[in-house]
Design a protein around this nucleic acid. Structure first.
Lengths: 218, 218
DNA sequence: TAAATTTGTTAGATGACTCTAAGTTATTAC
DNA sequence: GTAATAACTTAGAGTCATCTAACAAATTTA
């Protein structure tokens, strides 16, 4: 098994390299809040363990094995988040910190049971896909709300770059996963949108907000 | 906060010194599977932190502060065990290992929620008392089954020295907390007992078994 | 009570993870 | 195409929790 520390490096590598498939040591260092030389030596160690492709002065890439192991940690994180929300009544803004800790538990039984009690969910409370038991993650291709046009009707499917503050902001506006939104207007000069929302009236959302909301067109 | 390691020392000290109020470094070392010199230096460290009374060549004692902190860890352990059994469907023989890990989580919210969902239980699935939020534990004085006499009718209230094997042994005989037992015979030469048990016929239990079962006389 | 045994202590080393300081390679900006 | 800046690497040190080896104190045994 890997140490708590190694698991955190793997997870960060996985998350940061999600798009390009590679990360700079510098990004990783910032993400983890750990100084470059420390990251550097850990990369050599993970490279020894065949979890990371490491070459001097080159970007970092997870090996297939590394991706699998990282996927399994993220699986535990997301199952936990789902459990906390669905079975323990936490809000989606409260679960990240707890899941950061529970994801490191070593107990196949425990996560197996969570999974079963939840009915084998495919997504977490923020709409992110839960990797399967082999660590593989199916990307669902949603659109950003920011790329939609006036008149579109969409369903809120996922939230990215989730922070407590952002999620609380969405709570206040009753913007939860699944809500149907109709785009009334899109401002040219700042990209903000006015959307109408089932029961409530309409809300104006800044471009920054719209860029973090993933939707499914209806 | 204390490290994972320190918490394990505190917990072990608490459990081992439950009766006499003190433990030898040697016992502690054996319990934790950690060599004496390591234990010795950790005791000095915990003494610095005012968690343990340490004097050369004297038995170890937890300070009041140490007892409180240990009690809080045991509280988390036992609440977790209760949650795993009551809310997640685990058997009482499966929960110890998982709780060993969860007890170290730092999230007041999480344990608060568990406690509430369970309805503020006072005992864990093995009948051990759950310390309160200040770390204080109320001992309930049950009798050992081994000290009961022929003809007594008792209710099984708690199990001590719980190991997987012992709990599985009890499962097979449908001996769960709360069952009513009537003591038919007590063998003079080996202290084994024949007890009859609600629905089932009667079972013969060795002295070793009877010594690990705590009962309430009816 | 003296010898043998057990228990406890000190000293010094190791491995995991972190850091700072200083040097090297790439990249960016005139 | 240098010079400046940013990114990366190396070297060396510190902390935490662990170990082994060697010694000292306490306890048990004969």
């Amino acid at each position: 098994m890997h140490s708590y520390t190694e698991e955190n490096y793997l997870k960060a590598l996985f998350n940061l390299s999600a798009d390009k498939g590679e990360v700079s040591a510098n990004e990783l260092s910032k993400q983890l809040g750990i100084k470059m030389p420390t990251v550097n030596s850990m990369m050599k160690k993970l490279s020894e363990k065949k979890l990371v492709h490491y070459e001097s002065y080159k970007p970092l890439r997870l090996t297939e094995k590394g991706k699998r192991e990282a996927g399994l940690i993220i699986r535990k994180h997301r199952l936990t988040e789902m459990f906390l929300v669905q079975k323990m009544g936490f809000g989606w803004e409260e679960v990240h910190e707890i899941a950061e800790q529970i994801e490191h538990l070593h107990s196949p039984n425990f996560f197996e049971r969570m999974d079963a009690l939840l009915g084998y969910p495919k997504i977490d409370p923020h709409g992110s896909p839960i990797p399967d038991k082999t660590g593989k993650m199916e990307w669902i291709k949603y659109e950003k709300l920011s790329s939609c046009k006036e008149g579109d009707t969409v369903r809120l499917a996922a939230v990215i770059h989730t922070t407590d503050d952002f999620l609380k902001f969405l709570n206040l506006r009753e913007l939860s996963l699944g809500v149907k939104l109709k785009i009334k207007t899109v401002e040219k000069f700042d990209g903000s949108m006015t959307v109408s929302h089932n029961k409530k009236g309409s809300d104006t959302l800044s471009h920054i907000v719209c860029d973090r909301l993933l939707v499914e067109k209806l």
